[in-house]
Write a protein that binds this DNA or RNA. Structure first.
Lengths: 202, 202
DNA sequence: GTCTATAATTTGATAGAC
DNA sequence: GTCTATCAAATTATAGAC
């Protein structure tokens, strides 16, 4: 049974697409309306303002990413496998939404205060603390090499997310075409996992 | 002998500051004028339009970064030392201009075509090709472990740049204050170099 | 060169008919 | 709910005096 999407849903999808590509400052209500196949007035009928529309979109996207992030970290597996699950899941998520990481990082940078409160309520820190404890435990037991957990976490995030954040720059600088890029990314999960494993294993 | 900066130079500095923080779409000519301590009309007197002003700023910043990048890669040193020099230099450069990486990546993402031509003239690819050849050589000789050069290069770039690109997000998510962040970054060069060395050495 | 004042354009938001 | 028409504010750009 196929339900056709409500106007509200159509607007949300259109807004998501435009906001994610152009950012809040660069997005135009007119463009969102066109993308949705309606007019500007209707945008304001459903959402009172550009600000409110954006707020809804951003929350949805951010919650989804945080949710993904938590899932891999919360399981009961041994550290190395947990890290590799994290890499697989995180890169898969990004591959499906390649513009998202740059979008999130950018909007928070533009307006950090707006998000501090929202994020606190997400309670991601306890999960991370557990993850870090597990790292420290493995180091004490000599199973992995010494490295401050936060640096290791930054390394993992960076190895996963950076290529997608920097893709337009890398392609421009190297003159790489889209096919070559895709071939490169096809191996990315494997290469990242190998790189991390080598760095951690004594 | 101290020469006081010309109005043109003052404008350029002000514009750089505002553009880098807000991006092209988010920056306002009024704000740039205020930052420079002049009025909007004078901006248009020296640079014809917002677009032209931005173009000049971006080129200068981008050229500087590419120049830094090339320097470390072009020397005659052994690979591992070349990589470690690169990390030191790159992170130092970023620390002095923490907003630059996100700015560059973002503006290229917004308007890739604008830069393809400009970048080609920079001839960064030959230098990179030499760097990659050196990597392959070291792998053949068994001095470092096997890894596709482009992946290794992405890893190095990501490990250096990502923390600064994601700083606002990381701080927001973890509730970290500025002092703690600075303590973390104080060790960043060392941690990155160690991580890479471990991953490469058999 | 630098300013004030203002034009021209873009853009978010609303009024009101259907 | 959806549209057309229009307003109000913001923003880039220019004219013209000094």
């Amino acid at each position: 049974m196929i339900v056709e999407p409500s106007t509200e849903q159509i607007i949300k999808e259109a807004a998501k697409k435009i906001f994610v590509r152009k950012g809040f400052a660069g997005a135009r209500m007119q463009e969102i309306a066109e993308e949705a196949g309606i007019n500007k007035a209707l945008l304001h009928y459903y959402y009172r303002s550009k600000e409110k529309l954006f707020e809804g979109i951003f929350s949805e996207i951010f919650d989804h990413m945080i949710g993904q992030l938590k899932q891999s970290v919360t399981t009961d597996k041994p550290l190395i496998q947990k890290i590799e699950d994290f890499v697989d899941r995180y890169i898969s998520t990004i591959e499906q939404n390649p513009y998202i990481p740059l979008f999130i990082v950018n909007e928070i940078a533009q307006n950090p205060d707006r998000f501090v409160e929202k994020i606190k309520s997400k309670q991601v820190f306890p999960e991370l603390a557990g993850f870090f404890q597990q790292m420290l435990g493995e180091m004490e037991r000599g199973n992995i090499r010494e490295i401050p957990p936060l640096h290791l976490f930054l390394n993992i995030l960076g190895l996963c997310a950076f290529p997608f954040i920097a893709k337009p720059m890398v392609k421009a600088v190297s003159g790489m075409d889209e096919d070559t890029w895709e071939m490169l990314m096809k191996d990315r999960k494997k290469e990242v996992k190998t790189f991390i494993r080598r760095a951690l294993m004594a």
